[in-house]
């Protein structure tokens, strides 16, 4: 096959003839174009749902292992608490330790208001591109950077300012226009308040490819303010355990 044959054939290719072959090729290419765009889009906003089953199983196993580890730690701490309160002659020192633990646990579980140095992150989601994945990533990044108490503020349907405490069991759901935090619907702009080392948390947020980068990718405007005193007054709702019961000392 000589290369000179290519040119007239190329001209032939460009001129529409409407033959059966051309129509068939057009239909197949239509499907290809459609499929390609669909895949591009699906890949661009891929979350957990696009992962393979094996990868998901791996992630689930990691999470389960971590949960077990935490549970074990919790049980050992609980038993320590019981030992200190019931036994050991209920000495003052033991009681103090327990009180400190209870205070820490109360703050951790969102049962008391808290204040302290920290940071405020304002998010203006002008493009309605905020997903729950981004918020969860952001919260985790703040926790990794040492945030002890977290809350998110926004306005409710009437426009009044609402603050929602973020604890371990808080869930996020996003429908683009609003964010549901632990059952409460919030509208933007959102302010995430965190108590902890403000400078460390601000640095963590600014890591390349980190949370701020992700927010900028969805073209949200952000403002990070390190504050000497952040007040978090909202409390997390207490859900009584349906199944779990305390292990009391035999």
């Amino acid at each position: 096959m000589s290369t000179e044959d290519g040119s007239p054939r190329l001209r032939n290719l460009i001129r529409p003839r409407g033959t059966r072959g051309e129509i068939a090729a057009a239909i197949l290419l239509l499907l290809l174009g459609y499929g390609t765009v669909v895949q591009f889009k699906a890949h661009a906003n891929a979350g957990l749902e696009s992962l393979r089953q094996t990868d998901l199983v791996k992630i689930l196993a990691d999470v389960t292992a971590r949960t077990n580890q935490m549970q074990e730690e919790k049980v050992s701490l609980e038993s320590l608490k019981f030992q200190l309160t019931s036994g050991a002659g209920s000495s003052r020192a033991a009681l103090e330790t327990v009180r400190e633990h209870i205070d820490a646990l109360r703050i951790l579980s969102g049962q008391v208001a808290a204040h302290g140095p920290g940071l405020e992150l304002s998010i203006f989601d002008i493009n309605s591109g905020l997903t729950s994945n981004i918020i969860v990533g952001l919260i985790n990044e703040l926790r990794d950077a040492g945030a002890e108490v977290l809350a998110i503020s926004g306005s409710d349907a009437t426009g009044a300012k609402v603050q929602s405490r973020i604890v371990a069991s808080t869930y996020f759901q996003s429908d683009g226009k609003s964010l549901i935090v632990g059952g409460k619907r919030l509208f933007g702009p959102y302010i995430i308040e965190a108590i902890g080392d403000g400078a460390t948390m601000a640095t963590a947020l600014r890591i390349a490819g980190g949370s701020l980068d992700q927010l900028h990718q969805i073209r949200a405007q952000t403002l990070v303010q390190v504050k000497a005193d952040v007040k978090i007054l909202s409390l997390a709702p207490v859900e009584p355990n349906r199944y779990a019961r305390n292990i009391t000392k035999p």
């Binding site: 051309e22 057009a26 390609t36 765009v37 669909v38 889009k41």
Partner: peptide
């Protein structure tokens, strides 16, 4: 020529209708 138009039309439909991939076909 007609196949090229088909390809462009497919891309346009994909952009216009914002479809999602059924979970079954995702991999």
């Amino acid at each position: 020529m007609i196949p090229a138009i088909g390809l462009l039309a497919g891309i346009a439909i994909g952009i216009f209708f914002k479809p999602t991939v059924p979970i079954l076909f995702q991999p």
